[in-house]
Design a protein around this nucleic acid. Structure first.
Lengths: 216, 216
DNA sequence: CCTCCCTACGTACACCGTACGTGTGTGACC
DNA sequence: GGTCACACACGTACGGTGTACGTAGGGAGG
């Protein structure tokens, strides 16, 4: 093969493989075959499979495009950051759980954190409050992405989820579930995401501010 | 062994195994050995490993104790539901990612949904709004649990995460990260969780209500 | 030229999920 | 009691996995 087999090429091919065939289809042998080489050749560039998946996560995080404008209103900056996060998850839908399930092993991906924290400070939160604000928003976004990932993976397996028979629901005393069944079945992930995001932003807006001095 | 090897026993033993040795240590052979039997005996009670892990998730979800009082103030009910969710995650810390990464395959675990929706209605949200409110809170809780799971698993691997050298951070232009490094290193997961939860509750409190009629 | 090292690649091993066949015990029915 | 059927425990075997290790080739520096 003309390709010189670098760590970066390996990682990018791994991402393609995950997106095409799902995470369960990724093995060192399959990945090597995809690159037209032997499985053991990969180990010259990557210490083991776990490190490979860490590198995949890092690669995806690094590829996140941050359009947040530090000069803009902090509310708009929060929206922008949250949406950028979601956008990268939509670019690599089947890799989301890979990224989410490994905690970061490198300092890469600290640029979003920096932006989030400066945004929190711009909103008037300092010290530990800034960190808590960031974590609250991040956790919400994270949960939304996990939810969406479950949905997309279920769609891929053409699994429409559990049968929800109205009669059964009534029998089990789940009357509210039955009443709201149409709304529960509909999945407007975009609208749901924006709803929760605006919820958090409005709550932050109403929050009393800490001063830089008392923060800690 | 005197134990009669039932599906329930298998699932409970699987949970123990996950909690003791982590999800990667769970194989049909190891699990069978734990039960003093052969690997293939398990297949008389469980169709395959994926179904076993689904059953593990279902078992854990079913074991959730819901203390929410429908008669109480809806804010307190939201707190109660969110904390119950988190409590079960703390009971099975190393199983959290197993539960989270599989979408529900059965109608079990609908009782929390029922409670959440009645709570949303008690708060004055109806129809699609009730569902959106529930999803916003659930997604926040979900993200928090995933974050905490990453932390605990990292602690288990005695991996303190990426090295964050203040000098490097400055060099990379991450001045806010460097400034807030102590707060970032500290992980008061309890306080962080409660902070975000109160944020959401206060936002819901301030939200205009839909009537049951206009809800759709 | 020789030498050294980096990389590709094959082989081998322990382990995995699970299809399939076999044996054994237990209950139903005559 | 005899016999039949069936459920379940268990062994074997196959294809796949991650990766330790050995070998071979090719390019760089002397």
């Amino acid at each position: 093969m003309g390709s010189p087999l670098s760590r970066d090429l390996i990682v990018r091919t791994a991402v393609e493989l995950i997106e095409r065939d799902g995470i369960n289809a990724v093995s060192m042998r399959r990945l090597a075959a995809e690159l037209g080489t032997g499985a053991m050749s990969l180990y010259n560039h990557v210490p083991n499979k776990a490190a490979l998946l860490d590198a995949v996560a890092e690669h995806i995080l690094t590829g996140m495009e941050l359009a947040a404008d530090p000069a803009a209103d902090w509310r708009e900056a929060v929206r922008s950051l949250a949406r950028d996060f979601r956008a990268v998850a939509h670019r690599y839908p089947r890799s989301v759980m890979v990224v989410v399930s490994r905690q970061p092993h490198s300092a890469v991906g600290m640029r979003p954190v920096e932006l989030a924290l400066t945004t929190a400070q711009a909103a008037g939160f300092h010290g530990r409050a800034a960190v808590q604000v960031m974590r609250a928003v991040v956790n919400y976004v994270l949960g939304s992405l996990v939810s969406e990932a479950s949905l997309t993976e279920a769609r891929w397996a053409s699994d429409d989820g559990p049968r929800l028979d109205p009669a059964e629901l009534d029998a089990a005393g789940l009357v509210t579930v039955r009443e709201l069944l149409p709304a529960l079945m509909e999945h407007d992930t975009e609208a749901d995401f924006e709803f929760g995001l605006e919820l958090l932003i409005s709550a932050l807006d109403a929050l009393p501010r800490t001063t830089a001095d008392t923060a800690g």
